[in-house]
Design a protein around this nucleic acid. Structure first.
Length: 572
DNA sequence: TCGGTCACGTA
DNA sequence: CGTACGTGACCGAG
C-alpha cells in the first residue's frame, strides 16, 4: 500500500461522487473502502485533499467523528454520508452506534445486542471457533470486541470497518428508496448527513464574539470581573441585598421554596415563583420588581457570566460549542455552550471581525408555510403567496389578524390562549386539508403510533407507563398527541432549514464566507465585507434552491428576512 | 454523588 | 392542558 489514496482509487476505476468510506484510528491511521477496493495508511490531509479535488467522493462513515478529524485538519469536503444521522432518520430515537445501526438494518432486535463484558464469561452465542478478524458474528450482530474499539487495532481491521460502513450505507440507501413518504427521503438522508458535517465545522470555527464588548456587557449587568473568590462572593451578596433589604426576614433567593415564603410574607400567594407569574405582582410590592431584576442578573452571573466567557470563548474571539445535526425528537440542530439560548442583551457581543460582516437571515412564518407544503393544502398554499401569511387567513376567516394568528398556532400546537375555538372552526372549514394532516398526527400520537415527518424521519412515541390513573393516562395520551402534531411540523421545518443551511455552506465557500450559527430558522454567515452584497444575495438564492429541492412542488412560497450587519443585535 | 425539580434563556 | 433544547441551582435520597 505504498501508493497514494488517489492513485489507488484511480487505478480501481473509482467514479466521481461514489461512496468512499473512511475510518480513522486514534493515532491518525486511515482506512478507506469503496465498492471495488480499499486502502490503508497514514492520514495525510494533502493526499485526501487531492482525492476531494479530483473525485469529490461522498465521504461515508459510521459517526461524525472521522468528519470532525478531517475538519480539525482543515480539510473541508463537499459531501458525506453519516450512518448515525441516517439511522436516526430511518429508525428514530437517539442511540445510533454501529452495533445498533447494523442490527436494525438486518432486522435484528435491539434486545439481542451482545454486550462486550459478558460475552467471554457466558460463552459464545454462535461465536466459538469463528475468525475474530471477521467483524460480523454468525448470528448477524457485530462483534462487541470490534464495536468497543477493536476496529482500530490494525490497518486490516480499519479497512474492514470502513467496508462495513460502506455496506451499511448501501443498505440504508435501499431502505430509503422504498420508504413511503411524500418527501424525498434519500435527499433528506444526504442533507441530514451534511448537517452533521456542518455541525463539526461550526464546532471548529466558532461564532465570532467581540471579547471586549462581551466583558463590558456582562460588567454592566453584574459588575466588574471579580479578582478573587471573596470579591465574587461580595458581589453576589450585594446583588442579594438589593432584594432582601426590601423585606424583613432572611431568605435564600436561589431556593424556590424560600422565595415562596418571601412572597407570602409580603402577602403574595403563588403556586410557583416563575417570572411570568410574578410579573402580575410587579406593582404590589417593590420587592417583586427587585426580585425579577435579580433573576435576570443572576442568570447572567451563573450561566452567561465571566466563567462562561472563559470556558467557551477562545482568545481568538470565537464562541465554540458542541453541535449535533439533529435532536432526539423532531430533528432540529442542537448546540451547547449557550449558542442556542444566548440572552438578547448579550447579542451585541456577537460581531463580525474587522473587515468582515455578518449576513443574517431568518425564515418568516416557517411553520404555517411548512404545514401548507407537507399537507398539500392548496388554499393555505395560496395564502403563502402573501409576505404575511396571516393576513389572507384573517380575511378568509373574517377575523382580525391577531385572532387568525393565534388560531393557526393553536391548530399546530394545541394552544389554549383564550377563545381560539371559533376561529379554529373557521380554520377547519377554510383549510380542511391542512387541519386533517394535523389531526392525523395528533390521533397517531394519542394512540401511541409513531409518525414520520415529510422527509421521512421516524418520530417514535413512548409507551404509556404502567400504573397511571384514568386521568393521568388521558393526559399522557394527549401529551403524545401534541408531541406528534408538533413533531411533523417542527421536524419538517428543521429538514427544510438544514437543506438551506448546507446549501449556503456549499455555495458560500466561493466567497470565502462561512456559516457560523444555525438557530432553528435563522442563520448567520460571516463574510468578507467586499462581498457582503453578494453574500446576502447568495443566502437568498440558496433559499430558492433549497425550497426547490425540498418542497413537493412550487405551490408554497417561503420568505426570508435578510440583513447585512456588523453585530447580530443590529438585525431587526 | 446522583436524579428530580424548578427556573429560564432561545426558536 | 403549545413543543423542543441546554444550563445551573437546590434538594432529598443514597
Amino acid at each position: 500500500m505504498s501508493s497514494s489514496p488517489l492513485a489507488a482509487l484511480t487505478a480501481a476505476g473509482f467514479r466521481r461522487g461514489e461512496l468512499l468510506a473512511l475510518a480513522i484510528g486514534p493515532g491518525g491511521e486511515l482506512g478507506l473502502a469503496w465498492t471495488s477496493g480499499s486502502w490503508a495508511g497514514e492520514l495525510d490531509p494533502a493526499a485526501l485533499a487531492a482525492v476531494e479535488a479530483e473525485l469529490r467522493p461522498r465521504w461515508t462513515c459510521w459517526s461524525v467523528d472521522p468528519l470532525r478529524e478531517l475538519v480539525r485538519r482543515d480539510l473541508r469536503v463537499a459531501t458525506c454520508w453519516e450512518l448515525a444521522a441516517v439511522h436516526r432518520l430511518l429508525f428514530g430515537g437517539w442511540r445510533a452506534d454501529p452495533a445498533l445501526s447494523w442490527a436494525a438494518l438486518h432486522d435484528l432486535p435491539a434486545s439481542g445486542l451482545p454486550e462486550s463484558g459478558q460475552l467471554d464469561l457466558l460463552g459464545p452465542a454462535g461465536d466459538e471457533g469463528v475468525d475474530p478478524e471477521q467483524p460480523v458474528r454468525p448470528d448477524g450482530y457485530l462483534r462487541p470486541e470490534w464495536t468497543a474499539g477493536g476496529w482500530a487495532a490494525n490497518p486490516d481491521r480499519l479497512t474492514r470497518w470502513a467496508a462495513l460502513a460502506l455496506a451499511g450505507a448501501e443498505l440504508q440507501q435501499q431502505r430509503l428508496a422504498t420508504l413511503k413518504v411524500l418527501g424525498n427521503a434519500p435527499a433528506t438522508a444526504r442533507s441530514e448527513s451534511t448537517a452533521e458535517l456542518l455541525g463539526a465545522e461550526l464546532g471548529e470555527d466558532g461564532l465570532p464574539v467581540n471579547l471586549a464588548t462581551a466583558e463590558q456587557l456582562i460588567g454592566s449587568i453584574i459588575g466588574p470581573r471579580p479578582a478573587t473568590a471573596a470579591e465574587a462572593a461580595a458581589q453576589r451578596e450585594r446583588r442579594d441585598r438589593e432584594v432582601l433589604s426590601l423585606v424583613s426576614g432572611d431568605y435564600d433567593l436561589r431556593s424556590p421554596g424560600s422565595v415562596k415564603a418571601l412572597l407570602a410574607r409580603i402577602g403574595i400567594e403563588v403556586p410557583d415563583t416563575r417570572s411570568w407569574r410574578l410579573e402580575a405582582f410587579r406593582e404590589v410590592h417593590p420587592a417583586v420588581a427587585a426580585l425579577l431584576a435579580w433573576r435576570k442578573a443572576e442568570r447572567i452571573a451563573t450561566t452567561y457570566g465571566y466563567d462562561w466567557l472563559d470556558r467557551h470563548v477562545g482568545p481568538d474571539g470565537r464562541l465554540r460549542g458542541q453541535w449535533t445535526g439533529s435532536d432526539g425528537a423532531a430533528g432540529r440542530m442542537t448546540a451547547s455552550a449557550g449558542l442556542h439560548n444566548l440572552p438578547a442583551e448579550l447579542r451585541p457581543a456577537v460581531a463580525a471581525d474587522p473587515g468582515w460582516v455578518l449576513v443574517r437571515a431568518d425564515l418568516g412564518q416557517i411553520e404555517p408555510r411548512v404545514l401548507a407544503a407537507v399537507s398539500r393544502d392548496r388554499e393555505l398554499a395560496r395564502a403563502s403567496a402573501d409576505a404575511d401569511l396571516y393576513a389572507p387567513v384573517a380575511e378568509r376567516l373574517g377575523v382580525p389578524r391577531p385572532t387568525a394568528k393565534v388560531a393557526v398556532l393553536a391548530a399546530m400546537y394545541g394552544g389554549t390562549s383564550g377563545n381560539a375555538a371559533a376561529a379554529l372552526q373557521g380554520l377547519d372549514a377554510a383549510y380542511p386539508v391542512a387541519m386533517r394532516y394535523l389531526r392525523q398526527a395528533y390521533d397517531a400520537g394519542r394512540a401511541g403510533r409513531s409518525v414520520r415527518t415529510y422527509g421521512g424521519r421516524l418520530v417514535r412515541m413512548w409507551a404509556t407507563p404502567d400504573g397511571l390513573s384514568f386521568e393521568e393516562e388521558r393526559a399522557n395520551s394527549a401529551a403524545r398527541g401534541r408531541f406528534a402534531r408538533n413533531a411533523v411540523i417542527q421536524g419538517a421545518a428543521a429538514e427544510l432549514f438544514k437543506v438551506w443551511a448546507v446549501t449556503i455552506r456549499a455555495r458560500a465557500t466561493a466567497l470565502d464566507a462561512r456559516v457560523v450559527l444555525c438557530l432553528h430558522d435563522e442563520v448567520l454567515v460571516h463574510a468578507p465585507e467586499p462581498v457582503a452584497a453578494e453574500a446576502q444575495r447568495l443566502v437568498a438564492d440558496c433559499l430558492i434552491e433549497a425550497v426547490r429541492r425540498w418542497a413537493p412542488d412550487d405551490a408554497v412560497h417561503f420568505v426570508a428576512d435578510l440583513s447585512v450587519v456588523k453585530r447580530w443585535s443590529e438585525a431587526k
